[in-house]
Design a protein around this nucleic acid. Structure first.
Lengths: 220, 220
DNA sequence: GCATTTATTTTGACTAATCAAAATAACTCT
DNA sequence: AGAGTTATTTTGATTAGTCAAAATAAATGC
């Protein structure tokens, strides 16, 4: 039986590997899981014994096929639960991450499927993050970010890859959510600032690091 | 932070005390939690140190006000989740108990309140079990059972106090669910059998112990 | 009222997950 | 290449929850 900790380790490896199957360093995993590095080493060796990850000592860790399957299932639960909380229970999108973090380990595959049907089989969650399919496919489209996109052209926000409450609250207050049309008017890398506007509203200034969390595509 | 185990211990003490504040014997608690008695003794002493229960050595345990408050909150989560699973996700009522057993420990009070509103503030769950109010009130109406009620009169099922899948599946197949009108036609205590009919359908025979799990009230 | 049965508590051991801190390995920099 | 920095692993402890089995207390039966 996979424990909550195991599910979390696998999920974090998946997220940190960012679609490649690069090795995830132990330190990154420790930071992301908020445990000390020694703990990660211990746990990862146990997961390797279970055949869920490959551990290359002093180099890092990557998911096996079995581990990836489990990680995707957890991620699917997480993102469908977030979608449910926002679309059905009308919760604030800045609050749902922590909730989903708990619920993802408590819902069965059957509830998952029914939730999926209730929500109309969504392909992205309220942050625009892709929801893995029931059969473990995870769309990995590459988008530009507000920090890297062309300037002066009309763009549509497709995804916000940041889960801190503060950031999401700020984004919501400024209408920076998936679906919003924006245009980058100015980008000053030395000052670390990106300026953008939504239609004719007043301009918004973002730090480059914040801008890098907002993914966009050209307006059709 | 109350752990899952702590929540479960409190919930089981609440359910076993059956609305009185009688002492729950350690053995009963062990059986109900499916752990050995020694484990219960150890855990209950810890809960007593936390001020959640009163432990009278060699006699039993009962909830303090704080423990009761927590137990009722868990029970409320359990029963609202069951209601959600049946009413919204259309799950079979025989399956929802185990699901709710997991989810009751994972949902926040905020989600709980929104679920409650979504469901229209129900007062009973799909089994007819009363749902504790947000402020810790638990209706404790006393009903007759099919094993103890008058015979020959029209009755309405209000509650089915048994959570085993087999029993609930049997009850569903025979339409023995809250709301159904039935009449006990014959009761033979020596044979341990109760015979009843729904309207003009064929008679159904129940063991006395099964009949005792089905609560009824006189038809209005 | 003493012996037997039954319930409870105690003791010692175990597992999963964690941390602190020491040990080791691997880079980096001149 | 040697010194220092950084990342990883190891070691020894700790906590929560559990079990097996021995010890104790209480209830029951003749």
């Amino acid at each position: 039986m996979a424990t909550i900790a195991v599910e979390n380790y696998l999920k974090h490896v998946l997220l940190l590997a960012e679609e490649g199957d690069e090795l995830v360093p132990m330190g990154a995993l420790a930071e992301s899981l908020e445990v000390v590095p020694g703990t990660v080493t211990t746990m990862i060796k146990a997961l390797a014994d279970e055949g869920l990850v490959d551990h290359l000592p002093r180099q890092g860790v990557r998911l096996t096929a079995a581990g990836r399957r489990m990680a995707l299932n957890v991620l699917r639960k997480h993102r469908l639960v977030e979608t449910f909380l926002v679309n059905v229970l009308k919760m604030d999108w800045s609050r749902v991450h922590g909730e989903a973090e708990q619920l993802e380990h408590a819902i069965s595959d059957e509830v998952l499927d029914r939730l999926d049907a209730l929500l109309g089989h969504p392909t992205v969650d309220p942050h625009g993050d892709p929801i893995p399919s029931r059969h473990g496919k995870l769309s990995s489209q590459v988008y530009a970010t507000l920090a890297t996109c062309v300037t002066g052209r009309s763009l549509r926000i497709v995804r916000v890859t940041e889960q801190s409450e503060e950031f999401l609250r700020f984004a919501e207050e400024n209408g920076l959510q998936p679906g919003t049309a924006v245009k980058v008017t100015d980008r000053n890398l030395t000052a670390g600032l990106v300026t953008l506007r939504k239609g004719s509203a007043r301009p918004i200034a973002l730090s480059v690091s914040a801008a890098g969390k907002i993914l966009v595509e050209p307006e059709k």
